[in-house]
Structures are given as C-alpha cells and as structure tokens.
Computed example of a mutant assay.
Amino acid sequence: MTQAKSSGKFHSARLDILEYSKNYFYKVISDRVESNLHKFYFPSPEEFKFIVYGDSRGTWDNWKNATLVAHAIEKEGIPFVFNTGDMVKNGERKEEWEKFMEIAVFMHNSSLYVSLGNHDIPCIYFKKYFYLPRNERWYSFDYGKVHFTILNSNSSLSSQLLWLEKDPSTEKNMENSNISSSIIQFWASWKFGGNKKNIRSSF
C-alpha cells in the first residue's frame, strides 16, 4: 500500500510492503520532467551496513569536500546513511538546503536519517525537505534487532526523556523486546543555558 501527500512541489510517498534482500527500481515523473531510473536495496535485517557522517556544511569551500564525501558514500552503495547534524551553515538560507540536496547524490539509492545540528535551526526548511518519523526533531525506528534513536540536542532534554522512558532504546525496555542493540545519535554535546552536559549522565 502506498500513501502520498503533497505540499506545493514537495511530495512524499510511504512504502508499507517491501521484501528483504531485494532491489527496487523507481523513477520520478512530474509534468513533463522525468528522472533517471534509480534503485535502492532493502537489506536483510540479519546483516546490514550503514554509514555515519556529519558537519557537511560546505559554504567555506563551495561544497567541494562535502561533494567528495557524498559521492564516496554513493559509491559504497550503503542502504542506510546517518548525518549527525550541521548539514548547512545557516538553517534560514533556503539555497544552502537546496545545495545540500543537490550534492547528496546517494539519497537516490539510500535512506538518510538526520539529527539537527545548531547550524540547521530554525528547522523550517529542515522539516520541509525531510520526511522523518514522529515529530522529525527526535524519533526512533527498528531495523531487525537494532533500535536507532535520533535525539535533538538543541532542545530541552526533559521532554525527550519522557518519551525515552517508553522507547526501546532504554535498557529496561530492551529486556522486554527482541531488540539486542541500541544506537543513539545526536549532534555534539547537549546544551543547557550555554553549559554543556554529557548525555550519558541523563540516562
């Protein structure tokens, strides 16, 4: 079953039924414009790889190094990619988000999960360009026996802790599920009124 929603020229589609260890091919058609044929691989939950990178804001060198990294990721053909934040230098500048999307060529073939960096806020364009679980600023998902949790270190931890108490990423909840590993991602150090606090002390 496929569900889609649109807002102006932005569209998203949810694929509910996919089979493991298979390649899927697709193209995007809008009016008279048609994309190239792309594919993505849906790996077995028993064995899969992912790439983590971050701080890809590339205005300082006209996105040269960020482009090299993005093409290297595409070459690896990894199905899951995580960006730890600071995708752009100024979250209020639409052109920087458009440039990030332009150079992130691996997104044709990989799923990208991101966390907010301090340079990505305010998140008006972040939420416009990404379609992520829950409230999109912090969220979680399972793949096989691995639970991924993405937090927002630019926001108060208290509201996220209330949510985390019911999230399988906590050790207590992991014992009551089939999750064997938990990975938590967030940008840099947590900030409270300008003071940095180690995230480990909050769990």
Rank of each mutant, 00 (worst) to 15 (best):
M1E: 04
Q3W: 03
Q3G: 08
Q3I: 12
A4M: 09
S7V: 01
G8L: 09
F10L: 13
H11E: 10
R14F: 02
R14Y: 04
L15C: 02
D16N: 14
D16T: 08
I17L: 10
E19I: 03
S21F: 03
K22H: 11
Y24I: 06
Y24D: 03
Y26F: 09
V28L: 13
V28W: 06
I29K: 14
D31R: 08
D31P: 00
D31Y: 06
R32K: 09
N36A: 08
H38E: 06
F40Y: 09
F40I: 04
F40P: 02
Y41E: 07
P45T: 10
P45C: 09
E46D: 14
E47F: 10
F50V: 05
F50E: 09
F50M: 11
V52A: 12
D55R: 02
S56N: 08
R57N: 14
D61T: 10
N62H: 11
W63T: 10
K64P: 00
T67Y: 01
A70Y: 02
K75S: 12
E76H: 03
E76T: 12
P79D: 03
V81W: 00
V81F: 04
V81Y: 00
N83D: 12
K89Q: 13
G91Y: 07
E95R: 05
E95M: 01
K99G: 01
K99E: 15
F100D: 01
F100A: 15
M101L: 15
I103N: 12
F106P: 01
F106N: 04
N109T: 10
S111H: 10
Y113A: 12
V114R: 07
L116E: 08
L116S: 04
N118D: 15
H119T: 06
H119I: 02
D120L: 00
I121M: 14
P122S: 09
Y125C: 00
Y125S: 12
Y125K: 12
F126N: 01
K128M: 05
Y131A: 12
L132R: 13
P133I: 04
N135P: 01
E136G: 03
E136D: 11
D142W: 00
D142V: 06
Y143V: 06
Y143S: 10
G144M: 07
K145R: 10
K145L: 04
V146G: 05
H147Y: 06
F148Y: 04
N152E: 14
N154M: 14
S156Y: 00
L157S: 07
S158I: 14
L162F: 01
L162D: 13
E165S: 09
S169D: 11
N173R: 12
M174G: 05
E175P: 00
S177I: 02
S177R: 15
S180E: 15
S181F: 14
I183S: 10
I184D: 07
W187Q: 15
A188P: 01
S189A: 13
W190M: 10
W190N: 11
F192A: 13
G194I: 03
N195L: 13
K197A: 09
N198A: 08
N198K: 13
S202L: 15
S202Q: 13
